[in-house]
Amino acid sequence: MPTPTRRLPKQDRREQLLDTALEVVRARGADELTLLTLAEAAGVSRPIVYDHFGTRPGLLLALYRRLAERHRAETARALAGAPPAPEAIAEVMSAAYFACATDMPEFTAISAALKGNLEMETRQRDLLDEYTELMAAALSPHSALDLDALRLRCVGVLGAADAIAAELNSGRITESAAVAALADLIAGGLVPGR
């Protein structure tokens, strides 16, 4: 039986549960995260966890959304201080991407755990679209591509970024190599015909 915890406002409890869920994923992997394991780890009753997330996919999506929003916010913050040159923007964007990828290794595990659920993949797609828009907005002043073509290249770059992040997280490359490779892909994608 969980030890009683003090009563928190609903949003504070949700944040506490998400913090605990991330700890579970870090310690045991995404496959071990269930509503029951979360309730036990957080020291709360199952109905509290069910009230916040409803289902395991709902919990995973809440974690994914939290990490994606943090990632997007960090990138936006980094871009706000970037010099207005395409190579500098590409470098800042790449560095921010991999800082988050190494700082949040559970992001990939949570994303993989959501695969196969159509509703969850649709919501993941929405979050990816938001990140793509952020990239395209930062790059569009430096590209002759129309916005649709630039967005498509951003989608491709993000796919490459995920693959490079997997190499980085497996220890096969260094962070500096990852940042340089992605920055080159971003900057190279700004010119039509390439």
Rank of each mutant, 00 (worst) to 15 (best):
P57D: 13
A109Y: 05
A136W: 10
Y97S: 12
A180Q: 07
A80T: 04
E91F: 08
E121D: 06
D129P: 00
L168C: 02
A73L: 13
Q124D: 04
A82C: 06
A82P: 03
D184S: 14
L118C: 11
A160G: 08
A166Y: 02
V25N: 03
L128P: 04
L67R: 04
M135N: 04
N169T: 01
E133W: 10
L168V: 00
T5W: 07
G29S: 14
F107L: 12
M1P: 09
E32N: 05
A73R: 15
R125E: 14
Y50E: 15
D129N: 13
E130K: 15
D126W: 10
A95F: 03
D51L: 15
A113R: 02
P47A: 11
L35A: 03
M104H: 13
A42V: 06
G58V: 03
L8G: 00
S170A: 15
T132L: 10
T3M: 11
G156I: 00
A166N: 08
S170K: 11
R14Y: 06
A96N: 00
L158V: 04
A163C: 05
M93I: 03
R66E: 10
S94H: 04
V157D: 05
A180S: 09
A149W: 07
E91G: 09
A165F: 02
S143P: 12
I110S: 02
T20W: 00
L118I: 12
R46I: 11
S45N: 11
K10H: 13
G188Q: 03
L128E: 07
L38Y: 02
A187P: 01
M93L: 15
R70P: 04
Y131L: 15
A90Q: 08
A88D: 04
I164R: 00
L67H: 04
G81V: 06
T37L: 01
M1Q: 14
R70L: 12
R7I: 08
P192L: 11
G43C: 08
A85N: 10
A27P: 06
A99N: 11
I110L: 11
A178F: 09
N169Y: 02
R26H: 15
Q11W: 07
L36T: 12
L35T: 03
E91W: 10
A160W: 07
T122K: 14
I173P: 01
A41R: 15
D148Y: 13
Q124C: 07
D184G: 14
V25K: 01
G116L: 05
P2K: 13
A136S: 09
M1T: 08
L147A: 13
A138K: 01
A180I: 03
G171H: 10
R7H: 11
R172D: 02
A101G: 06
E121P: 00
L114V: 06
P57F: 13
A177I: 00
A181Y: 07
L158D: 00
L145E: 04
A85L: 14
E32P: 02
E119T: 13
P47Q: 12
